[in-house]
């Protein structure tokens, strides 16, 4: 298994505030589903944004297959942000066309099959869809790529439990076993079964990085329960 992401002494400070990410070192290998877990404000989204080149580190570096974020690293990452990033005036079909043009690993037929399974009309304007449906559309687009790394920021936060199951199945069924999936979520119990590894983040630092099975064996509790114990207020 090769190293996919490497964070070296990564630090991020927002406008005259203290560090959100503080001298963080982290390595993520290919072929894993990893849960990036931590309480609010622990820096999960900040790390994800730096990996995607949406935020510039204050100090240190992020390397994707040995390179700082650039067009070629963006071509191998499929990113689902925690917000709606699609133009509301466009139709779902327009967005599929857009993704087909820019990502050579995008499979439109796979996207159309998933849209059909979720009964989402391709001709519908995004502005006419509910928030949950927009989130589903975004997830479908992201998971219809054959990327090396999928980064999913809160993929199941805004949807009902039935759709959550569908989304989790979609993630498991659609990613290449050589690829990695980095999932950032608060809903640990929903995704626990699929996680290979977990990363606990607190105050911008990694406090734990180990296989999910190790937590269950060592502490005799689920990842969700262990998380609650570690981050109890």
């Amino acid at each position: 298994m090769s190293v996919l992401i490497e964070c070296r002494n990564l630090t991020k400070c927002y406008q005259n505030n203290g560090p959100v990410i503080d001298n963080l070192n982290l390595t993520i290998e290919s072929g894993h589903i990893i849960g990036l877990l931590g309480p609010n404000g622990s820096g999960k989204t900040t790390i994800i944004k730096m990996i995607n080149g949406l935020l510039r580190p204050t100090r240190g570096e992020v390397l994707i297959e040995g390179q700082a974020p650039n067009p070629s690293t963006k071509a191998i990452i499929s990113y689902l942000p925690e917000r709606t990033y699609l133009e509301a005036q466009k139709t779902v079909a327009d967005i599929i066309d857009f993704f087909s043009d820019f990502y050579s690993d995008f499979r439109p037929e796979r996207a159309k099959a998933m849209l059909s399974a979720l009964k989402i009309d391709e001709k519908a304007l995004l502005k006419t869809l509910s928030k949950g449906t927009k989130e589903k559309v975004q997830l479908i687009l992201v998971m219809s790529r054959e990327a090396k790394l999928y980064i999913l920021d809160e993929p199941i936060a805004g949807v009902d439990p039935a759709t959550r199951d569908y989304i989790i199945r979609t993630i498991i069924n659609n990613y290449d076993k050589e690829a990695s999936v980095l999932i950032c979520t608060h809903l640990i119990s929903d995704i626990e079964e699929v996680l290979d590894d977990v990363i606990f983040l607190k105050d911008g630092q990694v406090t734990l990085h180990c296989p999910a099975a190790e937590i269950r064996e060592k502490y005799g509790v689920t990842v969700d329960k262990y998380f609650r114990e570690v981050f109890a207020c």
């Binding site: 949406l54 963006k74 990113y79 942000p81 917000r83 709606t84 699609l86 990502y103």
Partner: peptide, 13 residues
């Protein structure tokens, strides 16, 4: 804005 999350993650310079 939010649309920047798409534009800046495209494989373009």
């Amino acid at each position: 804005t939010d649309q920047g999350y798409l534009m800046h993650t495209l494989p373009v310079t």
